[in-house]
């Protein structure tokens, strides 16, 4: 009994916080827009009983998904979001891994301080930090003024309102999410493995690739997920730092929701976005499980 109760907790959590909201969004995606409060139809009227429910169901259709298929804007936006997320994840990994490695190698008494330094930016609101970047990157901003002062450039660089500014913002914001899980795995790594590798004739570089890299994989994977998934749906950073040509699905979703007041199509966009994110993750986990089974 108690065991069943304990097992049921994560499932209840999943149902309450994922499946039910998803069901609501999915139902919305099958509705039609209307000028009313809320701006869609049909709405479920419980007092109608079973007949009312059947009537409600009969009004739902896949029209909005067909609409998405017909306009290539949506696919381009998905693709461009995934691409931006992929490049940012890669760059965050390239910067984050050495940082995490350096932290794990640092003397024990420093580690707490280093950890603190990684977490410290979270104490300032995310929005304020992005606004600070606007101040740094703008044409009359700190960076350009500094570069002009040193004489490296003759005219201000156009960084704000470009994709470069979006990448800078994303990498800056998401770096801790990459560093922390990698650090957590590297910190637990038993140094005697490395000693054994060196005893067996590995150079330090070889030992890194043969021992440290594979053992840090769980941290790297966790870090990549933590960066990739939210970046795909990122809205705030591209809208504040990006230019009008930065096409991301978050912005398209915003337009559907706010400019068109078309909640049903916005929901359909969100459902597809979820599928794009969830399916590769499930496939990845299946593949991991198979790989683990093959090992044992």
């Amino acid at each position: 009994m108690r065991r069943a109760f304990i097992i049921s907790i994560p499932y209840l959590w999943l149902i309450a916080l994922f499946l039910i909201p998803f069901g609501i969004v999915f139902k919305l995606a099958l509705s039609d827009m209307a000028i009313s409060i809320p701006p869609y139809t049909p709405t479920l009227d419980i007092s109608g009983g079973w007949a009312g429910f059947k009537d409600f169901l009969s009004q739902l259709d896949m029209e909005n998904f067909i609409w998405l298929k017909e306009d290539n804007l949506y696919w381009k936006a998905y693709l461009s979001s995934v691409q931006i997320a992929f490049v940012s994840t890669l760059l965050t990994l390239l910067i984050g891994f050495p940082m995490a490695y350096g932290m794990a190698q640092a003397p024990k008494e420093w580690q707490a301080t280093l950890m603190m330094l990684i977490i410290l930016p979270f104490w300032t609101s995310f929005l304020i930090r992005i606004y600070a970047w606007m101040g740094i990157l703008s044409n009359e901003g700190f960076l350009n003024q500094f570069l002009l002062w040193t004489g490296i450039i003759g005219a201000p660089l156009q960084i704000i309102n470009t994709n470069l500014a979006v990448y800078i913002g994303i990498i800056y914001t998401y770096l801790p999410f990459m560093v922390l899980p990698i650090y957590a795995t590297l910190e637990k790594l038993d140094p005697s493995y490395l000693e054994a590798a060196e005893d067996l004739g590995c150079s330090r570089t070889q030992a890194f690739w043969a021992v440290t890299a594979p053992l840090s994989k769980p941290g790297v994977v966790a870090g990549c997920f933590l960066v990739f998934i939210p970046v795909v749906g990122e809205f705030v950073i591209p809208s504040l730092l990006g230019g009008s040509r930065t096409l991301m699905i978050g912005k398209v979703l915003w337009d559907e929701f706010f400019s068109n007041r078309d909640w049903p199509v916005a929901s359909a966009v969100a459902v597809i976005l979820l599928l794009i994110l969830v399916i590769p993750i499930i496939l990845f986990q299946k593949q991991q499980e198979r790989a683990q089974e093959a090992e044992t």
Partner: peptide, 16 residues
């Protein structure tokens, strides 16, 4: 017309 307007606006802004 609103949908046409918004779609056009996205196209103008992003080139898509």
């Amino acid at each position: 017309a609103q949908r046409v307007v918004t779609r056009m606006w996205t196209k103008v802004k992003t080139g898509q």
